[in-house]
Simulated assay, not measured.
Amino acid sequence: MLESVLWGVVGAVPLVIGAVLAGLRTWPDRLVGIVLGFGAGALIASIAFELWEEGLAQGGPLPLAVGVALGAAVYFTADRLVERWARRAGGGAAAGVPLALGALLDGIPEQLVLGFGLADGAGVSVALVVAIFVSNLPESVGSSADLIEGGVRRPAVLGIWSVVAALCALATVAGWALADVATVAVRTSLNGFAAGALLVMMVDSMIPEAQRRAKDLAGIATVLGFALAAGLATL
């Protein structure tokens, strides 16, 4: 169990680091956009080489497809609710929330799967840890920068991401504890759920925000993020 706690914290801590970095100073728009583009590329590789490929090999296409559809629907619905809240609150306070929501809906099932692997004795590779860091940090930096620009106080932003990180870390422990009762179909569906939520989040929020901020550099940053994460995934 101690191992699951350790790796749960390691997987979630980049979310808090990103919030701290965003709160230290006001970063240039172009730099934040490049970071977001890089993170989007890393997430694309994570979906393709970890969530989708591993889910397909583990449980087949049906539970994976069900998970993808469910993850996409949950994120889409939650994001629409956030938009309604933003309109009532005046708009600025909700800036960056979609990325935080995506990190939560991705991080919980992803770290549940990590907990399952630890309970099964599969261990954790250094490449996986680096890949989690590469994908989680830009989400947190971009979301935190948007929240601060929208008028949310820095301590509140750090609090939001601390809660997200704590829930994701606890998910690793929950995965370890539930490994004996989680069927292959459930594990595969969780992979799909994370993939579906991430895909909608990237297309609706992360990539457009990267393009808005970094302009012509967003594409190359995305390719670099994909190349690094894909390389790590194949190690």
Rank of each mutant, 00 (worst) to 15 (best):
A57N: 14
K215W: 00
A165P: 04
L51N: 06
L70I: 11
L217M: 09
M202G: 09
V184E: 11
Q211C: 01
A195Y: 04
F226Y: 14
P98E: 10
G59M: 04
A22L: 11
I17W: 14
S4N: 11
W52A: 14
V223E: 04
R84S: 12
D120I: 00
A119Q: 03
F49G: 04
G91L: 13
D79C: 04
P98A: 11
G92C: 06
L99K: 01
F133D: 04
A221N: 08
L232Q: 07
A185W: 00
L99I: 11
V129G: 06
V141M: 12
A169K: 09
E139N: 12
V97R: 00
A174L: 15
E149T: 12
E3P: 01
N136C: 09
P138Y: 10
D146Q: 15
A122N: 07
V184G: 14
A210S: 15
A72M: 13
A45C: 11
G55C: 08
A131T: 07
I132L: 15
E139M: 14
W85P: 00
A72P: 03
F133G: 13
D180H: 08
G67L: 04
R88H: 10
E209Q: 15
F193S: 00
L232T: 09
W7C: 05
A72R: 01
L217D: 09
V164S: 03
V163E: 07
R212P: 00
A19R: 08
V68H: 01
I47R: 04
V20I: 15
Q211G: 01
L105K: 06
G11I: 04
A42Y: 06
Q211K: 13
L99W: 02
G192I: 03
A177Y: 03
V203E: 12
A218F: 04
P109T: 03
G92F: 06
A214P: 02
L36I: 14
G150P: 07
S125H: 05
L51D: 02
M201V: 10
R154D: 02
A210P: 06
T222P: 00
L232C: 09
A194P: 02
G123T: 09
V74A: 04
A227M: 12
E3Y: 03
S144A: 15
V16G: 02
A19Q: 07
A227V: 15
T183L: 00
V10Y: 10
Q211L: 12
T172V: 14
V184L: 13
